Amino acid sequence: MPVRRGHVAPQNTFLDTIIRKFEGQSRKFIIANARVENCAVIYCNDGFCELCGYSRAEVMQRPCTCDFLHGPRTQRRAAAQIAQALLGAEERKVEIAFYRKDGSCFLCLVDVVPVKNEDGAVIMFILNFEVVMEKDMVGSPAHDTNHRGPPTSWLAPGRAKTFRLKLPALLALTARESSVRSGGAGGAGAPGAVVVDVDLTPAAPSSESLALDEVTAMDNHVAGLGPAEERRALVGPGSPPRSAPGQLPSPRAHSLNPDASGSSCSLARTRSRESCASVRRASSADDIEAMRAGVLPPPPRHASTGAMHPLRSGLLNSTSDSDLVRYRTISKIPQITLNFVDLKGDPFLASPTSDREIIAPKIKERTHNVTEKVTQVLSLGADVLPEYKLQAPRIHRWTILHYSPFKAVWDWLILLLVIYTAVFTPYSAAFLLKETEEGPPATECGYACQPLAVVDLIVDIMFIVDILINFRTTYVNANEEVVSHPGRIAVHYFKGWFLIDMVAAIPFDLLI
């Protein structure tokens, strides 16, 4: 008679799926529990143990900040960024110097990925580790590398530091407007667009060049630039800015003055950032001319202004700041037409079709709590990747769950009947059967004279019903998954307890 339990259901295979997918890609990662103190490590794979030199037993239950890997060259700011990422709910990448158990130093890129439950609360953290440099290539500990984003994938490793954006290309926007319009339909740009040429040739750093990471940081200074100062900065030398009595002219307006920039070969870094931020506020060169004239017309309804409409929906549905990093990277690809469009465009503009998908598509409701890094690593669709929660398995109709209350009560009843059979069957065979043979035949009273025979008949009927119930009862397979398919249940029961239950259900007393 089957006594099969499996009270692990309803099970959740999400954690096993993450481990299996990460292991298949030869990654070095740990999984931490966000619900406990210090976000203790609950799993670390073999790749991480080989990377740091510690065994799994030495890593388990330690804080996922990996303070046991810190050393003299470990930056405090990087460690603080990892700790801050564990307090938030967004994906974050941090470069930090770690030390192995043998004392060797290596520069590592740590990717902190939160995993949320159905309520939107962070319950786990996945920390992925990628070695960037070994100890002989690690720089000085005073050099802070965590304020910069990861290198873009479309640049060669040897040319990542030679990417320079020439400031004269930004200063000569109005001069290039006529050349853009003359391109017409034969050019790649839309009317009114501004073409910015980027020099990728390796050259020595000069005062006129600005690194790509500095251009990325310009967006942080746009908020500090007032509207009046932006307007004066875009007017140009024809209309000098008016300053109040006793007030000095704005240095932001002076930063885009061609006369002032041409007199000296070098520009201050602050002026460069502010000038680029001011130019980015204009949607095209037409807006710059309109600002000089004193009238700013409404933005025209053409394809170039609607190019950012799908980007707005993608940004609203993005799951991490990696989408913004990807957008900034692609927006700086050289030799393309940049349409400086305000994100607050007309909502009635139709979304044009684009061959290049900048932001990841909208994630469906079932995966809105899973970050983009987890979705990318697992390579699963929205119909396959579940949320991290207890999910009731989908069972067929008329199927009994093996952990249901009805099955528990039924098993206790069958257990009592088995005990009765084990006690009274030998007793009936030894004593009652002998008395029946010696006594007179009682054929007239039937079952009324033999109450134990009636009980034995009921017990046999219950055993037959138990066999039928076992054909529709779920079970737990070797992978700790609840199986509810009727065919698989029948095959599993035939290979197991079916023969024993059938022999126990045969009414031998009635056959004798």
Rank of each mutant, 00 (worst) to 15 (best):
R20Q: 12
N317L: 08
G224C: 05
P237I: 08
R4C: 14
D102S: 06
M133W: 15
V113L: 14
R366P: 07
N317E: 14
H302E: 08
A282D: 07
P310Q: 07
E230H: 03
G306C: 12
P141W: 06
R27N: 06
F125D: 01
T216C: 03
F348P: 12
F106S: 01
A244V: 12
S354D: 10
L200F: 06
L225P: 05
Y99I: 01
V377E: 03
T174N: 05
L210F: 11
K21W: 08
V198W: 03
L324I: 14
T337N: 14
E372Y: 04
P157T: 13
R76K: 15
A172G: 15
L200N: 05
N339M: 01
S207L: 06
F106D: 01
L316T: 09
E118V: 09
A253S: 11
G236K: 04
V279G: 11
P157F: 15
R271S: 10
P300C: 07
G294T: 12
H221W: 10
R273D: 14
L165P: 14
R4Q: 12
C108Y: 01
L86V: 08
P240N: 11
I123T: 13
L316K: 04
M124E: 01
F14I: 06
S266L: 11
H143K: 11
A97Q: 15
E289G: 04
E130K: 05
L256H: 13
C49G: 04
S354M: 10
R159C: 08
A142K: 09
K101I: 01
A268M: 06
E177M: 06
L324N: 14
A228D: 06
A244H: 14
N38Y: 06
C265Y: 14
T201C: 08
T162H: 15
P245F: 04
R92N: 15
K21V: 13
L296D: 07
S26C: 07
S331V: 01
Y327R: 07
P114D: 01
P63N: 12
M291L: 12
F14S: 07
R242E: 07
S283D: 08
D286S: 09
F98K: 01
S153G: 09
N220E: 12
V94L: 01
Q11N: 15
D286K: 05
P245V: 09
S322G: 12
L349I: 10
K135H: 13
V3C: 08
A32M: 01
S283A: 08
N220L: 06
A78M: 04
C265N: 13
K116G: 07
A382M: 03
S264V: 09
R273V: 12
C39H: 14
A78V: 04
P258W: 05
A156N: 03
N146C: 15
R328G: 14
A169I: 01
S351T: 05
S320D: 15
S261K: 04
E214Q: 06
I19R: 01
S272V: 05
R181M: 06
L343A: 11
G314Q: 07
I42W: 01
S322T: 15
T152L: 06
G192D: 15
E130C: 04
P297Y: 07
V122L: 12
G71F: 01
E37R: 07
S206H: 15
A253K: 15
M308V: 12
R35L: 06
R269E: 15
V194G: 04
P205Y: 04
P10T: 12
